[in-house]
Amino acid sequence: MDLIVEGVSHRYGEVQALDDINLRVADGETLALIGPSGCGKSTLLSIMGGILAPSEGRVAAEGAAPDGCLNPFTYIFQDFALLPWRTVAGNVGLPLEHHRFDGDGRARRIAEALSLTGLGEFADAYPKQLSGGMRQRVGIARAIAVRPALLLLDEPLSALDAQTRELLMEDLIRIWARERTTSVYVTHNLNEAVRLADRVAVLSRRPGRIKEIVSVPVPLDERTERRHADLIETIREQLWRLIVDEAKDADRELESVA
């Protein structure tokens, strides 16, 4: 399924968060949204999935959702958003409970999502018993279980330590290779962007506009290979130059004392 963003602007009161965003995410593609803090990238992600109404413009989908899709626009959250009173299996099953299944269809889907994320043996554990990485795997399993047409990832690895982040990136690449889900990935981490995205959209700060879209012309599973190292590093440098000045401004900004 393709995602089309047409002329989206958004204001929070006086503050213009997004200004005339136009984007097309192609079927099966992963688009990363990067930008300094306060550039409205999370706002844009919320608008894309329909949990925030834009002040202007519209978001449309084109093409069919995958078979058995229960929730076309599905989020993976930075803070995992797991229900602490439910087990791992209970959390993964939550979005399936208001849909009808034949026979043991629901249990099969849960088991499938758990095994794909390596959570099989943790099905009966509670979130507080799990490490941060495992908690986010539950969030990923919950998202996969509904067979989304578009996966919206809101800084999914930001709450994790660097080593866990590496492991989860590999998991995501493996899952994408299998499911071919169209994805939008918000991050402030350039390494994640050049590692996971087919294209990287760089947003400017306040108002958020698309400054440039950079392609990463290396297949996902070859990104860590030595022969591509120079190209990947060049792209990373290019992305950094695009945001460095505004990142400095963002860093030095005082919050208004309202």
């Binding site: 949990i51 989020y75 959250f77 803070d79 958003a81 229900l83 979005p95 509904v146």
Partner: peptide
């Protein structure tokens, strides 16, 4: 964030 999560999965209000 948990309520937003429920909404993002289109869970019905009562649920």
């Amino acid at each position: 964030n948990l309520i937003r999560m429920g909404q993002s999965f289109d869970m019905p209000y009562a649920q």
